[in-house]
Lab assay of single mutants.
Amino acid sequence: SGVNQQQLQQLMDMGFTREHAMEALLNTSTMEQATEYLLTHP
């Protein structure tokens, strides 16, 4: 699906929903950016 499943699982383990985590990974290129994205786009 174009996203790193390991990163997706890590974000879900942090408490984010699958949909939200996927959106973040699709819009960013690193785990750090994805986390930042999730925190700034709740």
Rank of each mutant, 00 (worst) to 15 (best):
S1R: 09
S1K: 12
G2P: 12
V3Y: 10
V3K: 05
N4S: 11
N4K: 09
Q5Y: 12
Q5W: 13
Q5G: 09
Q7D: 12
Q7N: 14
Q7F: 15
Q7R: 08
Q7Y: 15
L8T: 03
L8H: 03
L8I: 07
L8F: 04
Q10V: 12
Q10H: 09
L11K: 00
L11S: 00
L11D: 00
L11W: 01
L11I: 05
L11P: 00
L11G: 00
M12H: 03
M12D: 00
D13P: 00
D13V: 09
M14E: 03
M14P: 00
M14R: 07
M14T: 03
M14G: 04
G15D: 02
G15Q: 03
G15S: 03
F16H: 06
T17L: 14
T17I: 10
T17V: 09
R18C: 06
R18F: 07
R18V: 06
E19R: 11
E19P: 09
E19F: 13
H20L: 15
H20Q: 11
H20G: 06
A21N: 00
A21P: 00
A21S: 11
A21D: 00
M22S: 07
M22R: 08
E23Y: 15
A24S: 03
A24E: 00
A24T: 01
A24I: 01
A24P: 00
L25V: 04
L25A: 02
L26I: 10
N27Q: 08
T28H: 05
T28A: 04
T28R: 03
S29M: 10
S29A: 12
T30R: 02
T30D: 07
T30Q: 02
M31Q: 03
M31S: 02
M31E: 02
M31H: 04
E32G: 05
Q33E: 15
Q33N: 04
Q33D: 12
A34W: 02
A34M: 02
T35L: 15
T35A: 10
E36M: 09
E36V: 06
E36W: 09
Y37R: 04
Y37D: 04
Y37I: 06
Y37H: 07
Y37V: 06
L38G: 02
L38T: 02
L38Y: 03
L38F: 04
L38V: 04
L39I: 08
L39T: 11
T40A: 13
T40S: 13
T40L: 10
T40F: 08
H41V: 07
H41P: 05
P42E: 12
